[in-house]
């Protein structure tokens, strides 16, 4: 019975768009799936102590080349996307290899990734003749205009995007599962506990960290590509830089970065919470939603550092409340 539960959920998610769901909810679901993929990618690094404050950098460097290639050369996003993901991975190598080789850890790793995210954002703004700078850019509409263009990946019907986002998100969870069941996981856990000790028992610290970073960069880049393609609008401030980077980090923490579904739950909470508060307070109290959100973040990190889902999973697995096993349970 328990074995079939995940498949049942997937089947349910797959039929959602064919039920009469209001467009607005479908829109939210697409955003949640895409942000869920990005946050899952971030958590793959975060849960091993590699806290990156620059995942926005991987987003920007992936999505802009794809849109530019489409606008200027008419290259289909099906080719542009792998190029974009490839560039995100390349950026991961450029920052990751020296960082891990020279053992830049903790605070310092967070700060160099913060700088990286800003480098990408400012570079995009600086190239304003190409990218439109802070004003952003829109991918050109496919000519002749049609409702469904697989070549340009432009659909008027949101359900196409939903299915694409669902598949990509499931792919992200699958990657998480593979990592969790591999030797790499034990190696990375050992590294996050004590790097020197891990190296002394023969774990190749640099290569292990680099591999998980590249996987994370690729997932983040893919998420950004889908976000840009779905919104049909690219802005350097929302697709790179410190602001979105922190948003990714916090969604992952709120949900719980040590569990497979935690980051997605975090994305869900963040998006639903923001949207509903926005609907509740309306335009009268701009900033109220984010104020409460900021306050909750502080409380979460102090009182529930494993996140909401991490907390639920731990309670469910160990109802006796044996907190010493919390960590172990939450990583499963």
């Amino acid at each position: 019975m328990k074995r079939w539960l995940p498949y049942g959920c997937i089947a349910l998610l797959a039929v959602v768009p064919f039920a009469p769901v209001p467009l607005y909810y479908l829109h939210l679901a697409i955003l949640i799936l895409i942000m869920g993929l990005i946050c899952t990618g971030w958590s793959l690094m975060g849960k091993f102590g590699l806290v990156s404050l620059g995942h926005g950098g991987f987003m920007g460097i992936a999505v802009y080349p794809m849109a530019l290639l489409w606008n200027h050369y008419g290259l289909t996003p099906w080719l542009g996307a792998p190029i974009g993901v490839g560039l995100a991975v390349l950026l991961g190598v450029l920052i990751g290899y020296p960082a891990f080789r020279f053992r830049v850890v903790g605070h310092y790793f967070a700060l160099i990734t913060l700088a990286l995210g800003e480098v990408v954002r400012l570079s995009i703004i600086a190239a304003r003749e190409l990218t439109g700078g802070s004003l952003g850019m829109t991918p050109l509409r496919v000519q002749p205009i049609t409702d469904v263009s697989w070549y340009a990946v432009q659909f008027t019907d949101k359900r196409y995007f939903y299915v694409i986002a669902l598949v990509a998100w499931l792919g992200g969870l699958w990657a998480w599962r593979l990592v969790n069941r591999s030797m790499a996981r034990s190696a990375l856990e050992a590294i996050s506990e004590d790097e020197v000790a891990a190296a002394s028992v023969g774990i190749h610290v640099t290569s292990q960290k680099l591999r998980i970073t590249l996987l994370s960069a690729a997932m983040t880049g893919l998420g950004a590509i889908m976000l840009g393609q779905y919104n049909q609008y690219l802005n350097p401030n929302s697709l790179s830089g410190i602001s979105i980077s922190l948003e990714i980090v916090f969604a992952s923490i709120v949900g719980g970065m040590y569990t497979m579904l935690g980051p997605t739950i975090g994305a869900l909470i963040t998006i639903v919470f923001r949207e509903s508060l926005r609907a509740y307070f309306g335009a009268t109290l701009t900033g109220m939603a984010e104020t409460i959100y900021g306050l909750l973040l502080i409380l979460f990190i102090i009182f529930m550092p494993r996140g909401l889902w991490g907390f639920v999973v731990a309670r469910f697995a160990h109802p006796t409340g044996d907190t010493s096993r919390l960590e172990v349970a939450a990583t499963r």
Partner: peptide, 16 residues
Amino acid sequence: LATGGLLFFLQSFATL
């Protein structure tokens, strides 16, 4: 990260 939450809080409180 907790002071990062403070960042969001102060920003949006100022907006408010």
